[in-house]
Design a protein around this nucleic acid. Sequence first.
DNA 1: GGCGATAGGTTATGCGTATTAACAGTAATA
DNA 2: TATTACTGTTAATACGCATAACCTATCGCC
Lengths: 342, 342
Amino acid sequence: MSKRVTQRDIARLAQVSQATVSLVLNATDAAAGRIPAETRERVNKVIRETGYVADPVARRMVKGLNRILGVFTYEPAFPSAQADFFTPLLLGIESAAQELGYDLLLLTGAGESRKIFGDNVRLRLADGCLILGRRFDPDELARLVRGDFPFVAVGRRDDAGGPVPYVGVDYVPATAELVRRARQFGHQRIAYVGPDSGAESIADRWLGFQQAMVGADLVATLPGVGRPAEEVLDTVRRAGASCVFFSEYADAIGVERLARERGLSVPGDLSIIVLGHHLRAEQSATAFTSLFIPREAMARAATHMLVRRVESDAPVEQQLLPCEPVEGETLGPISSVNHQAK
Amino acid sequence: MSKRVTQRDIARLAQVSQATVSLVLNATDAAAGRIPAETRERVNKVIRETGYVADPVARRMVKGLNRILGVFTYEPAFPSAQADFFTPLLLGIESAAQELGYDLLLLTGAGESRKIFGDNVRLRLADGCLILGRRFDPDELARLVRGDFPFVAVGRRDDAGGPVPYVGVDYVPATAELVRRARQFGHQRIAYVGPDSGAESIADRWLGFQQAMVGADLVATLPGVGRPAEEVLDTVRRAGASCVFFSEYADAIGVERLARERGLSVPGDLSIIVLGHHLRAEQSATAFTSLFIPREAMARAATHMLVRRVESDAPVEQQLLPCEPVEGETLGPISSVNHQAK
DNA sequence: GGCGATAGGTTATGCGTATTAACAGTAATA
DNA sequence: TATTACTGTTAATACGCATAACCTATCGCC
């Protein structure tokens, strides 16, 4: 734990004052003329020899900025169960941060419960922060909104005592578009598997679904995720649905496999549409009709927005990225054979 | 950018001095008795009302420590091409850091070339740092060794002007063990595909391989990775090898598939052993005989070692984790039929 | 020679916190 | 009554850096 080299040490070695060392280091074009080349070289020589680097902490004390972005995740970021969700986000954040010259402070949420405001809030070491996660603590969000600490949520968030700055994905029209396509294929009796509330992204899907269902028959809804495939398929078939929307990819995989096992044709007898992908799931060979969620682009945009807020104190922005349907092979017309059989 | 709440503000509101506020906050058992409950409550009330949190930067100025660990990667950490390599490491680091109450500072290497010592070295914001990556810059490593900044390398590293603290994997005996098993199955003519030098982890595999090959015939070596499967298979067969060691999983996959296409039996005609897994590869259905590399455990151990060094100025440690062979299904005796045919 | 201007620095100060030495005030003791 | 001991609080200081304010020669110019 030998002491670090400081500007004072450099100053002593170069026979100048600490202030001069600082001036040499921060040689902006304006102040550059102040220090003659000879002195500057002498100081720089000592700096090179000692390998001195300015302590960013002290720097921050003075300047107020650090070129560090905090990344707060409400769930651990790396465990493989979440990998499909977080990895593209982190990838986008990392690359954008690198472009912009920022480092990332990953907040581990030290201890059991992940909270932004704890005893040891090291968050403020960063100039601003990105918040990721499925579920947000509403109280903390409100507190952030109230406070003056720049942050941007990745994913749309409802107001929390004020508008929340975010970059999200516009699920509503994207989901509605998928419903429209289904109906163009003649589907009239449609089922929905997945929660209809909770996180905004989930609620938005449900909202878009409902909007476009006007005039069609919602014959069954199975809230929640992770239900047994048998239960889902039985319920859906009994209700006479020809098309099912799944909010979670993992659920769709199981039901699709079971359907095929039972001799049903997908999409001949049953069309399947997938709206999201959170849980790590076995890879299915089937290309589901679904949504392409631009997670990486979302994270990149959020990072840029945060930097805008940090650097120029920009006002709260809210940005929604469009979300393209993925054609896939699980949506099609009801096959006439089975249609008649029925 | 409204001004932050500081201890001075708290002090003013609570009618005490800034020092008192600090004492209340850092109420160690010793100093706790000094402040009577009545005053303490008054201060705490104001703190609660204002939502004050101590500025970690200023705190660090005084204490010198931050409870932050830097993570430096020589390559971007998240791009999916590297995901198989970095993700388990980051997972281990994150969980260990969380247990120990540290946050992580991900150094993006701002700019083009990733260097530890640049103009804007924000590394020192951390109390210490973990270094990941396939290839290390030897000069920088030597500089780190010489310096006083605590760091631990993930993966064994050769001395760089002094012993490098690391947690690595003991490839030498593990690789040797695999060779031994191959020879027990009667393999005498063996080939090696992959580099024999470069990163320590690669060199170690080669070393363990050579050690255990004494008395056997090394009939072919193909340095490098990413060669066409045809070239590899042809060379190996022409040399009359009955067993091939691959240093890279991705290479083995291609050759194994080609071998089967050509009607060869694996392991009947050719045994295949895989020593490492760096590149992202298509998943193969084949369970290769290989090594289980405890990447997550390695990262966890490295994190703990770093914290030891940070907190108690512990001496340089070097730790090698054992590495277990994975049975797999690509190593077996030479099938007598083909053996005779040949 | 007296004046201001300029080059080439230096001193002083503050950022927000932790910590220690010091200082009043009161109670206990001699 | 004078001294000591303790209690509760504060002023002072340091951490490393950036920067504003301030010196001191030296030079140019009338």
